[in-house]
Design a binder for these strands. Sequence first.
DNA 1: CGTCGCGTTGACGTTGATCAATAGGCGTGG
DNA 2: CCACGCCTATTGATCAACGTCAACGCGACG
Lengths: 235, 235
Amino acid sequence: MPISVGRAAERRIEPALLGNSIAEDDDSRDGLNLLDAIGATMTLKRDAPLFCEGDPAQHYYKVVTGAIRGYKLLADGRRHISDFFLDGDFIGFHTLATHAFSAESVRDATLVRYDRRRVDALVARSPHISKCLLARVCTELSQAQMRMVVLSRMTARERLASFLARMAERSCGKPAAAIALPMSRADIGDYLGLTTETVCRAFAQLKSAGIIAAPSPHEVMVLQPGALVTLATGA
Amino acid sequence: MPISVGRAAERRIEPALLGNSIAEDDDSRDGLNLLDAIGATMTLKRDAPLFCEGDPAQHYYKVVTGAIRGYKLLADGRRHISDFFLDGDFIGFHTLATHAFSAESVRDATLVRYDRRRVDALVARSPHISKCLLARVCTELSQAQMRMVVLSRMTARERLASFLARMAERSCGKPAAAIALPMSRADIGDYLGLTTETVCRAFAQLKSAGIIAAPSPHEVMVLQPGALVTLATGA
DNA sequence: CGTCGCGTTGACGTTGATCAATAGGCGTGG
DNA sequence: CCACGCCTATTGATCAACGTCAACGCGACG
């Protein structure tokens, strides 16, 4: 979720190509931050559930610290991780009546919880927030389509590269600094449609190619960002 | 792809818990049908392009007859079909400034084309349409997450079963009637993350298991709907 | 100090991809 | 109407990527 840095709140509304329905220079983060007033802080222990697929959705959430995994299970236990939610990410704003996936914490986490009815009331009253919300959901849909390409057509090495490129992009604090990977190899595997072992081997391949270095299993340094992106985009 | 009920239900939006942000009633299709007044009919020859990924989005579309495939390409030509759009489907309502995927016709098609600015103006003036739109995009996102499970964790046979179950659900005219499959085996493969040959073999497996019958390569009859759904849901 | 959980590596099996050949439908042109 | 050619579907044979099973190392924690 590449959240572009938002602009000042007061922004001219362009009736241009996008008309009024979707904001192009999306300051949806700022828009949704207006919700903070009605949020309540909560904490979650490692591996603790946040909600389950199919549960009626009563709340929205924002991650403050820690990491949450959203996942879906097949009847026989096969798991797919829909998304990792890290610092600053919103969870659940695209849910309809019930949650479309389960969510639990990867590690100890603190969240802000928003009462759904109060948020919805706020959204209904503010066209600006409403636009931000729609733009955010559209962006997520577009990203989901990109992930489908990864899952359906990329090799293990390319999948891992695309995952690491996304993580690097997110933690864009310092360039050549180590990226934190809070999740386990099994989590990464379930996110990429691979097994733990294949993820390990893909890590080994990227390391021996000199593209990344891994001071520890949960830290990665990108040595050749260009090569990583090339792999990640399937060139 | 919700394998359960009919097409109307798929588009239905639950009233509960949605507060004011999302439709209270289930007529998102009706809501968007209000747009018909500003649409213009057009036709497209087989394999003709409708728009390309990255192009500025000037129009929205609705399929009247025929079939459209939306797809994304990797640099080296690997293709993933994001979705097939069949009779009655809307295309592009979740696009931001530019198209997130390319689209071309699977066979001769007729569409309704909507000018984007006029639609957006309409959306901006009508909270009802706006709610329908948001609900629709949320539903699509949820379906995309289901497809990711299919692509990341299911076998070839299960993937094909899930595709056929979706097609059966869509053409829910007569129960035991033949389902039309307008697209080629290669298209189905690119939709499911498989090769043409593997799709053929999966068809052969489902046929020899007595789950389906295929009067012709582009028609399928579901003989055991229960078995198909069981496979499709990964039980 | 022992155990447990996770990561890593190795050996081997299986699924689906690749390569290749054949068959069938359909349109075109004779 | 028939012959030809092209495109797609199908099937077979082989290959490779990834999954499975297993062993081991290492750090955390009791």
